[in-house]
Simulated scan of single mutants.
Amino acid sequence: MKPEWPENLPVAQVRLARPTDKLREVERFYCEGIGLKKLDSFENHQGYDGVMIGLPGFPYHLEFTQHVNGSPCPAPTRDNLLVLYIPDEARIRQIVQRLEQMGYPEVVPENPYWKEKGAVTVEDPDGWRLVLMPTAGIGAGEK
């Protein structure tokens, strides 16, 4: 049976949004490096430029915005994570290799759990951490 979204929270789409001062580098990291797609973008909307990144046809997106006056946001802690669960470990290795060639090497995770489960952690251009987690490394309670 396919799980359904709770009736009392009728969400049609989920978008995680955050500011950056490195919009083009972040777009390149997530699109060229990770393999997500640029879904939409905008320029000079009340001083903001932005890009929406995700997978066409799926209601889960990342949005990155850059203000003409810059962003006061510092880098997050090493345990602020975006985790992508990927069933194909060979594909994870390809992504990691591509990111390394782009200048984004694997980093040691703050929480050793991720390394113990075979995940790879990489920092994006702003210092936010992305975890590529093989689905073979997750337990029944984590799916």
Rank of each mutant, 00 (worst) to 15 (best):
M1L: 13
K2E: 14
K2H: 13
P3W: 15
P3E: 14
E4F: 11
W5M: 07
W5S: 02
W5A: 04
P6L: 08
P6E: 07
E7Y: 09
E7T: 13
E7A: 12
N8L: 05
N8H: 15
N8F: 15
V11Y: 15
V11S: 13
A12Q: 15
Q13V: 14
R15W: 07
R15H: 14
L16I: 13
L16G: 11
R18C: 09
R18P: 01
P19N: 03
D21V: 04
L23D: 05
L23P: 14
L23G: 06
E25N: 12
E25A: 15
V26N: 02
V26G: 03
V26L: 02
E27R: 14
R28D: 08
F29C: 05
Y30N: 06
Y30E: 05
C31F: 06
E32I: 04
G33Q: 06
G33Y: 06
G33P: 01
I34W: 03
L36R: 05
L36Q: 08
L36H: 06
K37I: 02
K38V: 09
L39E: 10
D40Q: 11
D40G: 12
E43P: 02
E43Q: 14
N44C: 06
H45S: 02
H45M: 10
H45V: 14
Q46A: 04
G47K: 02
Y48F: 15
V51H: 11
I53E: 09
I53W: 10
G54D: 10
P59N: 09
P59T: 10
P59M: 11
H61Q: 13
L62A: 08
L62D: 06
Q66K: 09
Q66M: 12
V68T: 12
N69T: 06
N69L: 05
G70F: 02
S71N: 13
P72D: 15
P72A: 10
P72W: 13
C73N: 06
C73H: 03
P74S: 07
P74D: 11
P76K: 00
R78I: 01
R78D: 07
D79T: 01
V83H: 02
Y85W: 09
I86Y: 00
I86K: 00
D88S: 03
D88W: 00
E89N: 04
Q94R: 08
Q94C: 03
Q94P: 00
Q94Y: 01
Q94F: 02
I95N: 00
V96M: 03
V96T: 12
L99D: 04
L99K: 07
E100V: 01
Q101N: 10
Q101M: 12
M102H: 12
G103N: 10
G103D: 07
Y104N: 09
V107M: 05
V107P: 03
V108K: 09
P112S: 07
P112R: 05
Y113V: 01
Y113H: 08
W114Y: 13
K115Y: 01
E116G: 06
E116K: 12
E116P: 01
E116H: 11
G118N: 12
G118P: 07
A119H: 03
V120M: 01
E123T: 04
E123F: 01
D124A: 04
D126C: 05
L132V: 09
L132E: 04
M133L: 06
M133Q: 12
P134D: 07
T135F: 05
T135W: 06
T135E: 08
A136F: 08
A136L: 09
G139N: 12
G139D: 08
G141Y: 07
